[in-house]
């Protein structure tokens, strides 16, 4: 029984990390048809932001709460820069964006190596996140619990933004009909840019969260980018609901496979499951009649 709950928690925890990594992608891939391979490097940038903030602020608890918004801004700024310089010309040309952003990813990795050195760096977790919490049924790592809460907060925050704010309406309107949005007075370019800012900012936040689980290196993002795309594709492109279900589904699956085999075999098994699933349901968990968010 304990083992089952432990497995379930491991799945939730992995799922929440996947969700944080994939949420921003669901936005940028779903809205603009841009395959951003540098999304993982935006996570890496978020993680290094946490490292820099901590070396300035010192206190681990305070630095975490400064790092979360700072990571969002750094990720977002990188995203906007990429959008404004390169991607703007490539909307709905997935293959081109794939190649270009892959190149950008490599450049960013090298940049991180030049600035912070090749060896991994450590970000200290605050005291209240370094132990375990007793949930009655089992002891769970408080850092992992924190990440679960963070990912749920990110989903709710994004959902509220899209559903109720003027920007959210503009984003959804632009996804549904770009021309119509333009002709009713919406600057679709400015909207695209904000969408990219938010999506990339979420990658930065994910990166900050990852510093709680392990050390930070230049290739941090490459470990997550494929899984994040799996989540987006399995969930149904541009669908946040689907993204949430796919993230926790794949997380649980991966944790379960890992329990019975090894980590790399588990990855293969998950990939096979996703491929088989997409054969049966190519549109993902949720079908996308019009590509709409929420």
């Amino acid at each position: 029984m304990d083992a089952l709950f432990a497995q379930l928690f491991a799945g939730l925890s992995l799922g929440s990390v996947l969700l944080l990594a994939a949420l921003g992608l669901a936005l940028t891939f779903g809205q603009m048809g841009v395959i951003n391979m540098a999304h993982g490097e935006f996570m890496m940038a978020g993680a290094y932001t946490a490292f820099v903030v901590q070396s300035v602020v010192g206190d681990a608890g305070l630095s975490l709460f400064v790092s979360l918004p700072a990571g969002f801004l750094v990720g977002g700024a990188l995203g906007v820069l990429l959008e404004a310089t390169l991607l703007r010309r490539m909307y709905h040309r997935p293959l081109d964006t794939l190649l270009v952003t892959w190149g950008v990813a490599l450049i960013l990795q090298q940049l991180a190596r030049d600035i912070f050195g090749a060896p991994n760096v450590e970000v200290r977790a605050p005291g209240w996140l370094s132990g375990n919490v007793d949930l009655g049924l089992l002891q769970v790592s408080s850092a992992r619990l924190f990440i679960i809460v963070l990912s749920v907060a990110a989903v709710v925050g994004l959902g509220v933004l899209l559903k109720t704010s003027p920007l959210g309406r503009r984003i959804r309107g632009t996804v549904q009909s770009r021309d119509l949005a333009e002709t009713v007075g919406v600057s679709t370019r400015a909207t695209d840019r904000m969408t990219f800012f938010i999506g990339s900012g979420l990658a930065g936040v994910a990166g900050v969260a990852l510093t709680l689980l392990g050390s930070t290196g230049p290739t941090l993002g490459t470990n997550y980018i494929v899984d994040a795309f799996l989540v987006v594709v399995a969930g149904g492109i541009g669908q946040i609901k689907g993204c949430v279900i796919a993230a926790f589904g794949l997380g649980t699956l991966q944790a379960a496979f890992e329990y019975s085999t090894t980590a790399s075999l588990a990855k293969v098994a998950v990939l096979v499951v996703v491929v088989v699933f997409l054969q049966a349901r190519p549109q993902g968990i949720f079908s996308v009649k019009t590509r709409s968010l929420v």
Binding site: R172, G185, T188
Partner: peptide, 27 residues
């Protein structure tokens, strides 16, 4: 760009009763 022309006082109702289908009337 179109949205700038809108700001200058142009409005356009396209052919075929177009709307943002997934947004409510209010939205």
């Amino acid at each position: 760009r179109p949205h700038r022309r809108v700001r200058r006082g142009l409005a356009y109702v396209p052919q075929g009763q177009q709307s943002f289908p997934q947004l409510t009337t209010a939205e």
